[in-house]
């Protein structure tokens, strides 16, 4: 739980202080490594609301796809230590 909270806080900070091309891979990584990473979608939606125009919210759609693909990838990818 603490790990997740720290990750969430870091991601919010990265959305505010770092360029989007650092935050976006972090959201994808969050979807990959964390169970039901809803925060990632919310963060992408906030970024789209701040910077996006009335066209499609690209980042939110990408986050949704990563969210859906995350569990599948997690199951199929084999990690070696």
């Amino acid at each position: 739980m603490t790990k997740r909270l720290v990750a969430d806080a870091l991601m919010v900070l990265s959305a505010i202080f770092l360029p989007w091309w650092i935050t976006a891979p972090l959201i994808v990584a969050g979807c990959m490594f964390m169970e039901a990473f809803y925060e990632g979608i919310m963060l992408a939606a906030i970024i789209d609301l701040i910077y996006g125009t009335t066209t499609l919210p690209h980042l939110t759609i990408a986050a949704c796809l990563a969210f859906l693909a995350g569990p599948v990838l997690r199951e199929r990818v084999r990690w070696y230590s």
Partner: peptide, 13 residues
């Protein structure tokens, strides 16, 4: 406050 490069779209805040 923010512009292209920092934001994912060609917009300024």
């Amino acid at each position: 406050l923010s512009g292209p490069g920092f934001a994912p779209y060609d917009t300024l805040v």
